[in-house]
Design a protein around this nucleic acid. Structure first.
Length: 591
RNA sequence: GGGAUCGUAGCUCAGCUGGUUAGAGCGCUGCCCUGUCAAGGCAGAGGUCGCGGGUUCGAGCCCCGUCGGUCCCGCCA
């Protein structure tokens, strides 16, 4: 043993410990040498404790203390005592350790950046040295929260009679959904496993097996481009239940949210959460995952402007599924021309051709399109949107769905630009979006694709629509939206083989193909499948919200960059020719 | 696949319209200092301006390409 083992940690000492002789282990956070007195802050994951050495009475100790550098690992023994000058900024700030001895356990080279939450180094550098960045108290706190969440989740589901399973990671590639990560088989050259996008089919099969209540905290993999809230490998809380209807799944999920927020943040959130249909979410907020911490609702003014002389409005209104949508940005008449241009540019990114605006000041409407609108049209619009002096109205026109979604993007951007965002940072909103369309038509592939996944049950009242007008059929789905993030999603599944076959038919999948890809599931559905459904939570996004972060990398220990690289270990990387040969793989694109 | 933006000292950044020897704060090194906690004072070291090419009498700055970070669109059952 080359060090004195700690008898306390750096975050725990308080005035009541005064007089005790203790030993601390930790990292040198900083040293302040005043000549006549030397202070060293020792840090571990529990906190920071100040150690004091007095050169006058401890010349040998002081000489060694002057050799200490940032991030050395040391042990220090001493007496806890009250400080002459307390530091109210840290929990241990009332006490300090008067050192009697210390030793260096390990030295550290000069770090590539300072371990500090105050001024962050570039993210590229911090990712390259992720193990050092993870020493930062703010990041450590995120993983302490994440760890608490694991415990709460396991307990919650255990208390509710759920069994935990581990489903395979080497699985079968399926045609629907995201791009798969593939793993070549050595034994069967030319064949591949896929890493799971989610354990969807396995959990359904466990229902057929009679396990009734399944849960798993599980890694999932999707080979798609990254975002601030999306990583190629991420963690789901995967849940499936038998003999249930949608309400059972929803209330179970609500119970978990209440418990997480209560036990981690000491915030009481009220359940049941508000529910709205997909159609309502799209038409009122322009998003299937609206942020309901603020209003800025969209209004359909197609009826008011359908005969307008402003041709953009009139043409959109005349179009099939066309619409003119408007939003009242309260008190935003002060937006500059530049800000309005930026909003328009933002709308264009989401497929808008343009964005019209109208400001109300001193009782008059000021707008580039005012000259095309009749007074009665303007006053009808004003009345419908409740516009008053100081308000800014924003208008979008076009296909209803597209129009709603770019206006939804404008809604969020307006919230950011108006300062609404600043006031809602510490708020939380939870709500459900249900009744998603079962299918959406893919222009690219000239066929329907499942909105959720191909095993999602249609609403019973919409089953007839599957043959008449598939695009209008709704599914029994439930998405949990927290602060505008899709935090969980699920559905009641098809437990009837005939309905499942109908789905595959609609997806343009031949009987042979369906049999080849999903035959095992179709078989299972013929051997006594209970009605079942479930939900999967994005654990990383949940943790991000609990940590008050807007970036998923803050809650993933070793994340990838936007280009899916791991800067720390340098993957993905070359493999040897021997490895490739063993797998029967030849590269078509040698570097 | 596309758009925006960034890359200058170990770190965070400034660097004007292209013009002499590229700056600041922090950190680092040395010295001083008895109560700091972003300690303070004095002195010092430290630069392939991401990389490659081009324009120009002259490029950190302009142009083309490329690599990397971030954010977004598409994509993400």
């Amino acid at each position: 043993m080359n060090f004195r083992k700690r008898t306390a940690v750096c975050g725990e000492l308080r005035p009541e410990n005064a007089g005790q002789i203790i030993v601390l282990n930790g990292w040198v956070d900083s040293t302040r040498d005043h000549g006549g007195v030397i202070f060293t802050n020792l840090r571990d994951r529990y906190g920071i404790t100040q150690i004091v050495i007095s050169p006058e009475t401890q010349p040998e100790l002081a000489a060694r203390a002057r050799e200490l550098k940032a991030e050395y690992v040391i042990w220090a023994e001493g007496t806890v005592r009250m400080r002459e000058n307390p530091n109210p900024k840290i929990p241990t700030g009332l006490v300090e350790i008067s050192a009697s001895d210390f030793g260096v356990i390990n030295t550290a080279e000069l770090l590539p950046f300072e371990i500090s939450d105050e001024q962050l180094a570039g993210e590229e550098l911090r990712l390259r040295y992720r193990y050092l960045d993870l020493r930062r108290p703010a990041l450590q706190n995120n993983f302490i929260i994440r760890s608490k969440a694991y415990q709460i989740i396991h307990n919650y589901f255990a208390e509710n009679g759920f069994l935990e399973f581990e489903t395979p990671v080497l699985t079968k590639s399926t045609p629907e959904g995201a791009r798969d990560y593939l793993v070549p088989s050595r034994v069967h050259k030319g064949s591949f496993y896929a890493l799971p996008q989610s354990p969807q089919i396995y959990k359904q099969l466990l229902m057929v097996s009679g396990f009734d209540r399944y849960m798993q905290i599980v890694k999932c993999f999707r080979d798609e481009d990254l975002r601030a809230d999306r990583q190629p490998e991420f963690t789901q809380i995967d849940v499936e239940m038998s003999f249930v209807e949608q309400n059972d799944i929803i209330s179970l999920a609500e119970g978990l949210m209440v418990k997480l927020w209560r036990e981690i943040l000491e915030i009481e959130i009220s359940a049941p959460f508000r529910r709205m249909s997909y159609r309502e979410a799209m038409s009122r907020y322009g998003s299937d995952k609206p942020d309901l911490r603020f209003d800025l609702e969209l209004h359909n003014i197609t009826d008011i402007v359908c005969h307008s002389e402003f041709s953009v409005f009139a043409l959109a209104a005349a179009e099939e599924n066309g619409a003119v949508m408007a939003m009242n940005a309260k008190n935003c008449a002060s937006f500059s021309r530049k800000t309005l241009d930026e909003l328009t540019e933002h709308a264009r990114k989401y497929g808008a051709k343009g964005l019209a605006w109208m400001k109300f000041t001193d009782g008059t409407a000021q707008s580039p399109i005012a000259k095309f609108l009749k007074d009665e049209e303007i006053s009808a619009i004003k009345a419908k949107l409740g516009a008053e002096d100081g308000d800014l109205l924003l208008f979008g026109a076009g296909n209803w769905g597209k129009c709603c979604s770019f206006m939804g993007a404008v809604r969020l951007e307006t919230a950011r630009k108006s300062g609404i965002y600043e006031n809602i940072r510490s708020k939380f909103s939870f709500h459900w979006v249900t009744e998603f369309p079962l299918l959406e038509y893919s222009e690219d592939e000239s066929r329907y694709a499942a909105c959720h996944h191909p095993f999602t049950s249609p609403m019973s009242e919409d089953i007839a629509l599957l043959s008449e007008n598939p695009a209008t059929a709704r599914a029994i789905t439930h998405d949990l939206v927290v602060n505008g993030y899709e935090t969980a999603g699920g559905s009641i599944r098809i437990h009837d083989n005939a309905v499942q076959q109908t789905m595959f038919d609609l997806l343009g999948m031949s009987r042979e193909e369906a049999e080849k890809k999903f035959g095992f599931l179709l078989s299972a559905l013929r051997y006594g499948a209970p009605p079942h459904g479930g939900i999967a939570f994005g654990l990383d996004r949940l943790c991000m919200l609990l940590c008050g972060s807007e970036n998923i990398r803050d809650v993933i220990v070793f994340p990838k960059t936007t280009s899916a690289l791991s800067l720390m270990d340098g993957c993905p990387s070359d493999v040897s020719a021997e490895q490739l040969k063993e797998l029967g793989i030849m590269l078509a694109m040698p570097k």
